[in-house]
Amino acid sequence: MEAGIVGLPNVGKSTLFNALTLSKAAQSENYPFCTIEPNEGIVSVPDQRLDRITKYIVPQKLIPATLKLVDIAGIVKGASEGEGLGNKFLSHIREVDAILQVVRCFEDPDVTHVAGSVDPLADIDTIETELMLADLQSLENALGKAQRTARSGDKEAKLRVTVIEKCSEHLNEGKPLRLLNLNEAESAAISSFGLLTAKPILFVANVDETDLDGKNPLVDKVRQHADKVGADVACVCAKLEAEIAELDEEDREEMLTDVGLAEPALNQIARAAYHTLGLQSYFTAGEKEVRAWPVPIGATAPQAAGVIHSDFERGFIRAEVYSLADLEEHGGEKEIRQAGKLRVEGKSYVMQDGDICHFLFNV
């Protein structure tokens, strides 16, 4: 699963990306278009449950779940019509599963704001408008072909025409597609279009070092907007996090203590992005490795097995499942089994967040 980091130029996107991935993406500073190609990186999703499991099952390796992040160059007003670097970057967003929009929530006379003043709601509106205009263009381009195919009596094409018109009407009312309720068949009819405003979104408020909890009025405005659109908000001082990320473990802990943080704010962003993507984790645990596996909320046991390998899903027989609470109560798998707490689940079992599993399969 991928998440794309978007925002206006000079809001701290690349600084945040660098800190999250410990990479060295080109930072824009006062040069809005220096990130020419989208930078990509892999970020771990911190999960304390992994450490709790390893107290009882000691592995050779500990592997957290990961997410792929894409840092996309700053979008400006008019991008959908080719302004700035235009549709080139909108096309990069089409490939991601969720959007992380960084909004600047601090004043700094030394860092130029592309719009001339700091207004996170105006920034959000600018980017949302460009994404909606791009979606309208995509739908308009697809409508003619769908209508021609529908005239032949093709049922799928007829449905596609109906959904395209429904989405276009919604967008013309100034509403992103993530706020439009579509049933499974309707969503499938337009799934290949890569519509930008249909993707879930997480707002990342980039705050000043003196406001790490995000208590200033600018962040409040972002939270109020997020509540209206059903999105989450994560606060981060990208500049501080970039400094923390460069330190070794001992110095990092000392700096976190000095600034009053229990953990890097980046950890919260990774978990929030995971939630925005609609993911949860299940675990496999053995002597070789203890590992977290990302799986969509609502996935069945065979689908979860397929995350490990497609053969596991194809030849799924059953899953043996227990919980972390069971492990902490009984101290080991053998004891869990003896206590009758090891559950045997079939193909219809819906995975629960934190399940610890063994899959049995035959191909």
Rank of each mutant, 00 (worst) to 15 (best):
E2W: 01
G4E: 01
P9G: 15
G12C: 09
K13T: 14
E29W: 09
P32S: 13
C34E: 10
C34S: 11
I36M: 04
E37T: 14
V45A: 10
R52T: 11
T54Y: 13
Y56A: 04
I63N: 12
A79E: 11
E81W: 05
G82T: 14
G84F: 00
G86S: 14
F89M: 06
R94P: 01
E95I: 04
Q101P: 01
D110Y: 03
D119Q: 09
L121Y: 01
A122L: 06
E128P: 00
T129K: 14
T129F: 08
Q137E: 15
E156A: 15
K158I: 15
L159E: 14
V163S: 03
E184D: 12
G194A: 08
L202R: 05
A205F: 03
V207E: 01
E209Q: 02
T210S: 06
K221R: 08
K221L: 07
V222I: 07
V222F: 07
H225Y: 09
G230F: 08
V236N: 02
C237A: 03
K239T: 12
L240N: 06
A242P: 10
E246R: 12
D258P: 00
N267T: 12
K288N: 14
E289P: 01
V295L: 01
P302K: 12
G306F: 10
V307A: 12
F316P: 06
Y322S: 14
A325Q: 04
D326V: 07
E333H: 00
K334W: 08
Q338C: 03
A339R: 02
G340Y: 07
K341L: 10
S348E: 15
V350R: 11
C357I: 13
C357V: 15
F361Q: 11
